[in-house]
Design a protein around this nucleic acid. Structure first.
Lengths: 106, 106
DNA sequence: CAGTATCCTTGTTGATACTG
DNA sequence: CAGTATCAACAAGGATACTG
């Protein structure tokens, strides 16, 4: 029975997730990417007020964690698109639950 | 169809949730409370390394947000127990999804 | 036990300017 | 456009000591 099982299979599972989406901006960036690949400036515009420095940091980390992948879509000049990997897509259920709770209580 | 609906009913839902459980320690505190009411020092022990100052801050905020409720269980000297409200219990599904993702990728 | 008060270190952001 | 570099400002957290 679901409700009787412990929340975590082993300690730290929740923190693993939190270390990713708990940082400011990251969950929002991921949310935008669920609707499809985006470029740096598209995300920047959607966020409205994130500094390029911070966006760059978040994107780098997400790429390091294999949650997103950066793809070249144009050679000259080089242009990139960021899109969710499978690992990243699987975060959508977490975001959805967060959105549901937030919708109910905000 | 679920997968075709937008993640957020309106902008900010995800952030609402994040402002609560995105803070360091909070998700863990909540996790501990899903197994039943706890006292300040019980939580403190379970967290192992949280400072009383931080725990106190988190508990105050959670109480302000009506996610937990503080109950007297002893008059002299006054002793308190913290337990989840319905609103707080409903965060369990979020924590569970986080734990599932974390279990898979940690 | 159940916190509160202080202080101090560190991490995180934002602003801005600059580069290929 | 797609970032990187630098710097200043602030918030958050930890350590510790103290109180009812």
């Amino acid at each position: 029975m679901k409700t009787l099982t412990s929340l975590e299979q082993h300690p730290g599972c929740i923190n693993t997730t939190l270390r990713i989406i708990g940082e400011k901006w990251t969950a929002l960036i991921l949310k935008e990417l669920t609707t499809g690949p985006k470029t740096f400036s598209e995300i920047e515009t959607l966020m409205d007020s994130i500094s390029p420095r911070t966006l760059s940091q978040r994107l780098d980390k997400l790429e390091d964690e294999s949650i997103i992948i950066k793809k070249v879509y144009c050679q000259h000049p080089p242009r990139y698109t960021y899109e969710l990997t499978t690992k990243g897509q699987e975060l959508e259920t977490v975001l959805r639950k967060m959105a549901e709770w937030g919708a109910k209580y905000s």
